[in-house]
Amino acid sequence: MSRKFTPKVVTANDLVEGDVVYLTEAGAWTRRHAAAELIEDEARAADRLALAEAQTGTVVGAYLADARPGPHGPEPVHFREAFRSRGPSNYFHGKQAEAANV
């Protein structure tokens, strides 16, 4: 029996700003982890990653990151992804400072 698939989001960095971005269900890129598409199926994950990787003029370094459902949308599982979704802990910079910028 194959291992149970862990839900994923597709994430990358924006080519121009370098900011962390996530792929939405509509196929657009969002700055918010909670607005990402939570992919629960392995085949769909591969398709979505391929879609992201093809957008070399928009994003850099797309990959699949583990995620889980939360009250407001997908939440990161690993602490690295949690930091990516927030920004650094020493200054109020990055996403945490741009919460209004949805």
Binding site: N13, L15, V16, E17, G18, D19, V20, T56, G57, V60, G61, R80, F83, R84, G87, P88, H93, G94, K95
Partner: peptide
């Protein structure tokens, strides 16, 4: 050329690294 799509990231990455430009966790 990277911004107008003439260069892929694979082509551009060694060029930016030669000039000290990394892509990190939250930004360049």
């Amino acid at each position: 050329r990277r911004l107008d799509g003439s260069l892929t990231e694979d082509e551009f990455k060694p060029l930016r690294l030669m000039n000290g430009l990394y892509l990190q966790l939250h930004a360049y």
